[in-house]
Computed example of a mutant assay.
Amino acid sequence: MTVHVGLSKIDRALTQQAASRIPDRVGHVLSVVEEAAESSKLWCGAAAVMAVAGGRRGRVAAVAGLSALGLAQLISNGVCKQLVDRPRPPKEWIPHEEVHDRPDSSSFPSGHTAAALAFTAAVAPTWPAAGALAALPAGMVGLERVQSGAHYPSDVVTGAAIGLACAWLVRRTGGRLRGTTAPRATVLRREPGT
């Protein structure tokens, strides 16, 4: 009970600080990035660019990223939000108009953040430069979800953890699947005298 009360106080303080201290221009940029990430448009577009421009490495990274993203959305939106009915942060905490443009679904966890981190973390091992480029908008999406009043910081942290776990799982199972479906070529050596 004490932990829950402490977490609630931290959530409230960080939500109010993010909503009131982030300058309007920065908030506008965050909103543009979040709108691009809505319905995973940003990540699907990034995957398409990687698949076309990155050759085999780009295609592998894109498949891993989209697979992890899909799994993260399934877990965060299809499971967690159905099990945990947490209201969004109170509107009176948010001193700007963005608070009126948010979904009615459960606040817990942040599905946007889960998808963004899943995609980024799954892409990075195969193509580190693409992962680094995706990390900036992924971080911006998480920050925007708090700044706009759509989520508590703990929703975003949980979404990030789900995303990272999904990326790890996809990378781990993807490697195993590649190992079983694409056996290593064996080199036949001729024995001396044959």
Rank of each mutant, 00 (worst) to 15 (best):
G174E: 00
A121K: 05
A64Y: 08
A138L: 08
S110Y: 08
A72E: 07
T186S: 14
G179H: 14
S105N: 12
F108H: 06
L117T: 09
W43K: 00
A48M: 12
I94M: 07
A161C: 12
R102F: 05
S106K: 06
P95H: 03
A132H: 01
P95L: 07
A64M: 09
A122N: 01
D104R: 14
A124D: 05
P128D: 06
N77R: 09
W93H: 04
A115F: 04
A46M: 12
A121R: 12
A161K: 10
V63G: 06
Q73K: 10
I22R: 02
R178W: 15
R59A: 06
D11M: 11
W93L: 05
G174A: 05
R88P: 08
A46L: 11
K9I: 07
S76T: 00
G58I: 00
M1D: 15
V157I: 13
P23D: 04
A46N: 02
A53N: 04
L74A: 15
F119K: 00
T194F: 07
S105L: 03
L42E: 06
V157R: 01
L133E: 00
G55M: 08
R178V: 15
R57Q: 14
C80M: 15
G78Q: 10
T181C: 15
S148D: 10
R178I: 11
D101T: 11
A182W: 13
D155P: 01
A61N: 00
W168H: 12
S67H: 04
K81F: 10
Q147H: 13
I10Q: 05
S40K: 10
S20L: 08
L164D: 07
H96V: 05
P192K: 10
L143E: 05
R57G: 00
D104C: 10
S8D: 15
R102Y: 04
A118V: 04
H4V: 14
H100S: 12
G142P: 07
G78P: 01
G131P: 00
G139R: 03
W43M: 00
A132W: 07
A124K: 09
S106M: 02
S154T: 14
R57D: 04
A115R: 00
A160S: 10
A13Q: 14
A129H: 08
R190H: 14
A185C: 11
S76Q: 01
V146N: 06
V63H: 08
Q17T: 14
S148R: 11
A13N: 12
E191N: 10
L83G: 01
A134P: 06
S39I: 12
A116G: 07
A48W: 11
G54V: 03
N77E: 13
V146Y: 01
G142D: 08
G142V: 10
A129M: 13
S148P: 01
A122F: 04
G175A: 03
L7R: 12
V79L: 13
C166I: 04
E98Q: 13
I75M: 02
D101C: 09
R178Q: 13
A129I: 10
W127Y: 13
R21G: 08
G6Q: 13
T194V: 13
G27R: 07
S40Q: 14
I75G: 02
L7P: 04
W93V: 02
L133R: 01
A72T: 07
C166K: 03
